[in-house]
Design a protein around this nucleic acid. Structure first.
Lengths: 169, 169
DNA sequence: TTAAACTTTCAAAAATAATTGAAACTTTAT
DNA sequence: ATAAAGTTTCAATTATTTTTGAAAGTTTAA
């Protein structure tokens, strides 16, 4: 491993970790994912701990979380006791899984609340009318965006390209 | 203000705050935005502090941040010394501004790093080759997604609807 | 020019989130 | 059955982020 490669890899992992934080994904989780993304072979927990200088517990919990998101897989190696991990490397698949998971965990529950609060029966004040009107609009908008995520992730391959082609036409 | 309305409003503000956290936006910032979104008149800092039970400093800093994002505006009232605030209420405009701002602040810098690390000249190992290949793919994918944000936010109105219509066709 | 009304700033404190590490647990080989 | 090799869990600790509040700054009216 040349020094340049080592540096580049490290920079990538660090940057991805920082970016993750800004999007509400914890730093280590993003870093482990980044590391696995650019690794060409399955990696043991030991090696992840070593590379990212993190504890066993941290590695274990974040690998679990990544597997729950469906973007990291456990692999078993012939004649090896240890578990190895690989990342989903297909980017269409990766984006699809992240979109679906965020929809399920965050957008759907938010929609539920929006529907609920926009259903109050109060027209006694301008404020109340505006509230109902605005939250209904928000519900429609978010629901539409969520539908789009569903539609878009139904495409198996290359949906982003296809979508852009459609947009241009 | 009936009790139901008060409750609904509060639930909405709380929920939006919690959702914000999950997306890397601080709770108070999201709450202030939510509160302004469903308010039909300009609101003073005093009133925001009162409603959300937060300090003056907190209110001031987060209002500044929201204005930097371009989704909250200062208003001046005839014969009033105090400043009042309103949120961008048009949802297409809101989504556009958030998308553009995140692109500028996070995606563009990430692209820069991706370009940089994928440009190393090392083909001495399978690992290095895989790294370059994978980061190049990532660059292309993220660049494409970012282009899409640009295209989509060029539409002035109703871009989400138009996009869905195109997709269905 | 001054003082009242209001806003901003930022160091310190509080709250929240992430991380550690050791004990408990599981699996496999002998 | 047992011990070695490995993984998971979670209470305690540490790190990070957010919030406070008071001092400094600004604007306006008189």
């Amino acid at each position: 491993m040349t020094v340049d490669f080592k540096e580049a890899k490290n920079k990538f992992v660090q940057t991805w970790g920082a970016l993750g934080s800004q999007w509400g994904i914890n730093k280590t989780m993003a870093q482990i994912h980044a590391f696995l993304m650019v690794s060409s072979t399955p990696i043991s927990m030991e090696e992840i701990m070593e590379e990212l200088q993190i504890s066993r517990g941290n590695a274990s919990m974040n690998l679990r979380a990544l597997m729950d998101w469906g973007i990291v897989y456990k692999e078993f190696k012939q004649g090896e006791r240890r578990e190895f991990f690989t990342a989903e490397k297909d980017l269409d698949e990766l984006a699809t899984k992240i979109a679906r998971e965020r929809s399920k965990r965050e957008i759907k529950p938010a929609l539920k609340v929006l529907k609920e609060v926009s259903s109050i029966n109060d027209t006694s004040s301008v404020e109340a009318k505006h509230f109902v009107d605005q939250t209904k609009k928000l519900y429609d908008f978010v629901a539409k965006a969520d539908t789009m995520i569903d539609k878009v992730t139904e495409y198996k391959d290359n949906w982003l390209t296809k979508l852009i082609v459609k947009m241009m036409g």
